[in-house]
Design a binder for these strands. Structure first.
Lengths: 336, 336
DNA sequence: TTGTAAGCGTTATCAC
DNA sequence: GTGATAACGCTTACAA
């Protein structure tokens, strides 16, 4: 078996309480004993059992995170941001994947409760009332990241980029560049923050400029390359008057859309401009280089975990925090 | 506080032992009591404390994984494969990032020991003797995935794709397509499996066909887009006779290399063919569509976690297992 | 300052 | 079949 605090106590000829005090610096211990204990600890390479410790302290130094899919670069970057802070603070990260299914999300919330995590970061698709209730019933703090609750109530702390504003800015940018016929390839309709909110920003920008919003210019994909291709095809085939620009709600779909246009001998950006969202690394190496909206998911994760730590320490934090976005001008959008 | 086994016992008017038996199905309990206990458990929504359980059972149902960078799609896919199996088996995954630094890797091995994980999956860069020793000293089973130990000893179980053979096959494919002047953009020289082994496969294929291996045709990148660009630039500038094909050791660098060639008005594949490695999704949407070597990292992760489970259950498994690779023919390689 | 002993919430070993 | 009770390895009153 592993070496225990008792072994250390015996070998250092002190009580287990003293060893514990030395480990935790919890109470004064005479320098002499302290050294004796530390020497033995070093020598035997003793590490306190974190289960026993967690059992009594009700703190495990484990943070849970729930994401739809860890192989998605967006959630990868998010997780990396989170992990960077956790490691520095001596915490470890338990990663759970929900596939974006609400049932699974609820289940995972329970799994993490079982594991006695100190807090949870939650990235989902649609945080509706049922899910919010579920979250409120958990006895660990939760921070929503990447999306807000869809019931309009601000009861769970949230770190997010402003999707409405981001799309508004992006579409306004297209308008400033002379575009009037602007189509949208958006996210799933049931995706509150990345679907509905972005759609809202798109409409806002158009309406503000008195540009008509055309249903035939709006398609909903699922953020995959394939769906970008498919949505672009529909817009292309179902409109006799083509848009001069397409706002695509993530880079992967933007690449898919461009792929379709290339196949159809439509030149980007000469004939149609394409704007993406996220600013994944490959967009810079794509041809044409992708104009996009940069979201730093690393920073978003970082802010979220910092917020969670404050919550764990029972400090007060604003209910909602926004991460800035930035228009990245490259080649795929042309001024007309 | 949370409801405990004792609360359940009281409410069901039985002993804690009986409740425990019901929970674990460990010993026969009369149907009558069983029902009474289960009803109370249901009603109070009781979940046994996994820390207390872990403390006594010496099993936590937690698996650790150490990867260089979780935002790298390769490790993302790997992790997803692992997680898919873990979830199904009621295990959770603790994800640690090493940045590929050996010191950090050793530290994380210790962190996971602290957390009493039941086993660890390790994806690193150079698993040398020191690291192997460290691993052997851990009291949980470890499976190397994505790379083998670099000291030649097969003492840690390993799940990997055959890098030598994969490169051999890829370069042979180029040769079959008429290429003789084949350059290589490889991985870091200190990366045993993905660097040295792939280089070896490249050389083997050339030598077998009596094609001279030219130093000026070999560059080492770090698997990033940028380094692919940079390596391609060097090859382009430092050779008066250009290669007709470049074997690039991952897709990201391949895209970077193509980017450089485009910038230099060299057409791919008309002037130079480019072959990638990994088969990340975007390669299919890139233009020209990327010819590459497909590795299913999802499957690799899956096989690795299955192996680890066998080890945990003390079943015997082969020391090294190979995951198949496959040449994916697309546009970026031309027959000449 | 130090030690003794009572938990923390389980499982497992005994008796009955 | 069922129930006390002793672990598991630690922290923390409470005493000394």
């Amino acid at each position: 078996m592993s070496v225990t605090i008792e072994d250390i106590a015996k070998e250092a000829r002190v009580s287990v309480a003293t060893v514990s005090r030395v480990i935790n610096n919890s109470k004064a211990v005479s320098p002499e004993l302290k050294k004796r204990v530390n020497d033995v600890i070093e020598k035997r390479n003793f590490k306190p059992n974190s289960l026993a410790r967690g059992l009594i302290m009700k703190r495990t130094n484990i943070i849970g995170i729930i994401v739809p899919d860890i192989s998605n670069p967006v959630f990868g970057a998010l997780t990396r941001g989170i992990n960077s802070f956790c490691q520095q603070k001596g915490y470890t990260l338990m990663v759970c994947e929900s596939g974006g299914h609400q049932e699974k999300e609820v289940e995972l919330l329970g799994v993490l409760a079982d594991k006695k995590v100190d807090g949870v970061l939650f990235a989902g698709v649609d945080v509706n009332s049922a899910l919010v209730e579920e979250m409120k019933s958990m006895r660990y703090p939760i921070v929503l990241v990447t999306q807000e609750a869809s019931n309009g109530e601000e009861v769970i702390h949230t770190v997010i980029h402003d999707n409405v504003k981001a799309l508004y800015d992006a579409v306004s940018f297209l308008i400033e560049n002379g575009h009037q016929r602007i189509a949208l390839i958006g996210g799933p309709e049931n995706d509150y923050s990345s679907g509905q909110k972005r759609l809202k920003g798109y409409k806002q920008a158009l309406e503000e400029q008195k540009i008509e919003v055309l249903d035939s210019y709006i398609e909903h994909g699922d953020f995959s390359f394939e769906s970008g291709y498919e949505c672009m095809r529909k817009i292309y085939e179902e409109n006799s008057v083509l848009p001069t620009a397409v706002m695509v709600c993530n880079d992967a779909m933007a690449i898919g859309a461009i792929r379709f246009l290339k196949t159809s001998k439509v030149s980007v950006p000469a004939d149609i401009s394409i704007m993406g969202f996220d600013d994944l690394e490959f967009g810079r190496y794509f041809s044409p280089e992708l104009t996009t909206v940069r979201i730093s998911y690393f920073d978003e994760g970082l802010r979220a975990i910092k917020t969670l730590f404050k919550l764990i320490q029972e400090q007060s934090v604003p209910m909602t925090q926004f991460i800035p976005h930035k228009i990245i001008r490259r080649i795929s959008v042309k001024k007309i």
